[in-house]
Amino acid sequence: MSSQLHGAQHFDKSKRTKIEFSEDAMKTVQTIITHYPEGKHKSALLPILHIAQAEFGGWLSPETMDYVAFVLKIKPIEVFEVASFYSMYNLQPMGKCILEVCQTSSCWLNGAEDILKYIEKKIGIKVGETTKDGMFSLKAVECLGSCGTAPMMQCGASYHENLTYDKVDKVIENYSADGKLRSYTDHDYKNTL
């Protein structure tokens, strides 16, 4: 990890005009902070990082993390420590739709490896890569609590379960069609596919 991620020194107020929560997001952030006792506002860090990731392009840039530290009045290193620990925070730019295909036991028993290979071939990238047009990233992930409807993948807030090749085709088509950024905090969860 590059060392420049750590410090507060490159936090530049002029950049903050770009990196600033929308009014709605700020309201949510303020509400979340009221969930904890006086002085324990650091507890809001994980939920706020999710909001920040959704607001600022689907990943947490050093500037975004510094901004979160500023909003929460904690040290930037405290933010980086957390952002680098949890698997849902991206520390580099990702595709608009991150296809996270579960590879753990129950999914594997039901063909998850083949699903992964199929997707690799379909969108022409390997696990860990992003398509050139920036639309899709592909990840192999561990159990997402959907083992009874295996194989499955997650994209943003949506779970796509009981996957078949056909279903994968449809999901990818749907996402390509509107070209929107999918984040975990999306409200339009629909488990239709």
């Binding site: 999710h50 997402l144 609590g145 779970y159 975990y184 905090t185 969860y189």
Partner: peptide
């Protein structure tokens, strides 16, 4: 609640 269950959180 685990982060991946965001829709359950809603």
């Amino acid at each position: 609640i685990r982060g991946e269950y965001f829709y359950v959180l809603r």
